[in-house]
Write a protein that binds this DNA or RNA. Sequence first.
DNA 1: CATCCGCGTTTAGGATAATCAACAATCTGC
DNA 2: GCAGATTGTTGATTATCCTAAACGCGGATG
Lengths: 192, 192
Amino acid sequence: MSLALQDEQMSDDIGTRLKLVRQIFGLTQRELARRAGVTNGAISLIEQNRVSPSISSLKKILDGIPLSLAEFFTLNFLPSDELFFSAGELTEIAHLPEISMRLVGRRAKGRAMGMLHEVYQPGADTGEAMLRHEGEECGIVVSGCLTVTVGAQERTLYPGEAYYFRSDIPHRFRNQGAEPCVLISANSPPTF
Amino acid sequence: MSLALQDEQMSDDIGTRLKLVRQIFGLTQRELARRAGVTNGAISLIEQNRVSPSISSLKKILDGIPLSLAEFFTLNFLPSDELFFSAGELTEIAHLPEISMRLVGRRAKGRAMGMLHEVYQPGADTGEAMLRHEGEECGIVVSGCLTVTVGAQERTLYPGEAYYFRSDIPHRFRNQGAEPCVLISANSPPTF
DNA sequence: CATCCGCGTTTAGGATAATCAACAATCTGC
DNA sequence: GCAGATTGTTGATTATCCTAAACGCGGATG
């Protein structure tokens, strides 16, 4: 059975959403009501979309699961067959010839982040025209070395070293070493 | 019939949150009310936390900005300061003796994600009592192997293989191999 | 000044949601 | 088949929210 929701339901169908969440956590209306300190009738009405709960009520209910409001609204109900990925299943995102960028999983909307396995060949360069986009990004060098420029700052990172910056600051990646550089990076919200 | 406010964290302070968002978009209460099709009084009361709006009302208001409910609740207002981190500067987060977990940067609240460099010694195990927390997590095995259990599914991942799942699904990590396993993982929102 | 704006706030009353208690439907074991 | 427990639903009452209209305040303009 699939627990996936359509996009339209993701945004406004609070009732179905609550019902799904409650069932995923194996709770009855009465049990959840008891934990949350509300009545089972209220939960019934909400799940039927016969009322639109106040934030305070919804928060009380979610506290009984427990689940935050932010999580409740961002839940994307990923199908369970997309949990694990073998190396060959990472989806290649080739922007430049000398740089391999492979994303964990498919390009899924609604995810909180994207994780990439990247390989920079010697001499690879994302370009003097610095990259700039929304979000934050972070990475750790696994092997080789990578010269990272962020705004006015620049540094060459070696295995075990890392970076974390806001992606709206202009940035650039270059491999100035003699061997390929392997980098594992993450960005949130996902760029790809 | 009390006008006293409940003790609320910033994350649950809908009033302040709405006010910040509204001001960021340069709207007055009346202008936002007009676009949203509600009254300015309603917005005033909500921003003072004197009432807890219904989901339908809050959605109408956010549509006037426009902003989705999910975006509203996940909004973060925080800059990051330090850009680069040497291997020794990763902050150790030791939960278990046989597992080393080193976070990129300090434990900064408000970041979109956290990235960890983890080493699981042979036999290391996060425990049969499965982990569960908010957010999503993702990781790639760099060396060694790691057995990952997510809900009812389990798989042993080898270098280059990866996982991505919602952290509220019970999960567990074990190194059943003979050599240490190095894993680079990310979680969003950051757990540490 | 005095007047007019536009802003956020407040108040009374009608609209909406939550509670309480009862109800029907579905099991389970005897 | 029946009693008892469990689950989701429903009507009447109570509690809460939203609206409409007014209020107080400060800045701009004559």
